[in-house]
Write a protein that binds this DNA or RNA. Sequence first.
RNA 1: GGGCUUGUAGCUCAGUUGGCCAGAGCGCCCGGUUUACAUCCGGAAGGUCAGAGGUUCAAAUCCUCUCAAGCCCACCA
Length: 718
Amino acid sequence: MEKTYQPQKVEEKIYKFWEKGGYFTPKIIRGKKPFTIIMPPPNANAPLHVGHGLVITLQDIMIRRHRMLGQPTLWLPGADHAGILTQVTFERKLAEKNQTRYDLGRRKFFAEILKFTLANKKTLENQIRALGASCDWTRNSFTLDSKFDKPIYTVFKKLYRQKLIYRNERMVNWCSRCQTALSDLEVEHKETETKLWYLRYPLKTSGKFIVVATTRPETMLGDTAVAVNSQDKRFKNLIGKTAILPLMNREVSIIADQVVDPEFGTGAVKVTPAHDPVDFEIGQKHKLKAIRVIGFDSKMTNQAGQYVGLDIKLARKKVLADLEKQGLLEKEEKYSHSVGHCERCQTIIESLISLQWFVKIEPLAKQAIKIVKDKKIKIIPARFEKIYFNWLENIRDWCVSRQLWWGHQLPVWYCGTQNLSPLQKQMNKIPTQNGCGEIIVATTPPKKCPKCGQTNLIRDPDTLDTWFSSGQWPFNTLGWFQKSQDFRYFYPTSVMETGYEILFFWVARMIMLGFYATGKIPFETVYLHGMIRDVFGQKMSKSRPETCIDPIKTVKKYGADALRMALVMGNAPGTDSSLSENKIKGMRNFANKIWNAARFILTNPETKNQKQKPKSVHKDDRWIINKLNKTIKTVTKNIENYRFDLAAEEIYQFFWHTFCDKYIEMSKKRRTETQPTLLFVLAMSLKLLHPFMPFITEEIYQKLPEHGKALIIEKWPR
RNA sequence: GGGCUUGUAGCUCAGUUGGCCAGAGCGCCCGGUUUACAUCCGGAAGGUCAGAGGUUCAAAUCCUCUCAAGCCCACCA
């Protein structure tokens, strides 16, 4: 044995040994309860970051331990096409060449992203291997595998038939950069310093004004009312009167509505039903016209009169200047409020009216609440249950259509183009075509219109929100639709281990869609981990390479075992933790410690060929065995309680400071006599350590004088 | 506006239902070429447990308030 442990010489060899041995593929044994984790598929648009390292580590700990308990254990790997994120990533690459998706056209654009994604996916898979993940590659899946199309469309169709999916013209979040609608979750609200402008709207009958306060003066061009609170005495006799909208010279009526807060601004609010969610609802209630003055390109439309073609910022400047000229700008105040930004590209979100597909979410949400309330699914740490309930209780319908090209196209066909929105026609260059107007939702392309027989049907060009399909990941990867043996045996899965930041995006949707589609919960336990931060407690970012830890470089330098141990130590469930190179070094030293303890025990010439059972009569021997047993208990308990951090710490302490520092030192005086105990404690320690540090433990295990086929399938100590 | 989390040694964190002089790793300082390991060993220093008040025989741990840091949700014109 070498003087120091060299993971570079060991890890690849050991991984091949496991993979060749078929240890990652479970044998289905009827009557035996399996343990299953579906790996959250990493996004196939970039290499792994250190957060993935944590995912792999935590899941592999659970998986390896359950395998050692003798359960049929499945860990199913995969990769995610990651809809909007990948499209944005790829569009940035195109932008470097001064190209847009429209230059390539839909078909070519899709093909190019697919090429890019599949290449990345290959890299990802090798990186997952490098981290030691004992996942079953024979079941490896990709979200865009064609075998998933039909199941996903089947769920869509079922929802549509039960009126849980509908198409409507509503206010949506619009990203003018991505050129798509977004769900509420995809909008990031950021506190922004801006101004509150007070605008005077002249009254029709008197020479007076009604003053409204706004952060979006340019939208005034689309105002169709002024609203006040019905209880507000100041405006009592103005309700029902008419004001003249400046610049546009349009008559707008003064209406009363409870949503208006008399305390805010002047107590009077301009109403722009086409460009503000609250105003949209006021507009619906009061049957106001919605005049669209801002287009999908975030430029003023021809409804904006002389301001047509200006972008929002410029229009704002000009509107304010023009109002000022007419003495209609009363004042401006500094004001700070939160403004929505696109989660993926940080563009400011516009609220626009658009024809989109929505999931009627309330019935699904209620079921999802019940499941957790009834303890059918347990969320760890428990405090996230509250957060989960709160979100589901206040949920609004989910916009699932995207005007993207990368993803699952909607399984919807139209007879005639009259069903397409002008936007859809324009974006996809679809020529006008007549038809009877039938809407067909089908899992495979229909040959003809069932109503009028027309054969030339037009498919809805939109794609599904990526989370609509990934919400179906647990049951689709197991072959629910094909009624496969895997599905019958491994579903519901055991644990869903993922980051708390996707509790709403993903976990809640998996629970809703999983139960809706299969009638069963998708998993029994949700374990949420926190974010890995750098030494300064900042989010790691490639823009700060000094503190940003690349998992793969780290594996090459210090070994996967060291990285895994550094990631799991001090990482409490649901809590952010920090990682530094120093910590990894410390764990590399620990690996070396294990190596050298083994070297001491296994290469002693005095004890060669000696075969003895441990007698444990000497007090030192009894002492270490006693300590070992305590450690086994604590480590087991902590793993069962999902406190992998404490389990790791326990075994670290035991091995280094109890076994090495104390017992091995004591044993030197009675070297021959202690050999059986040394071997025994070493072997047991390797088993306890294996889920955390699989490579070095397997390597040493193979050097033990007596050993089974592989440590990976050894029995967990009791 | 609603909610959540965190605040313990220079740094990263343990401290599970309140109970042994408050712990570990890293760092720092002192001493060690003990043939498993200098990626090591032995030893030392270092804390008003954010602050204030309360409950208790007993509080880092429970309650109230304050301060600080961070996060999430929300139709804050």
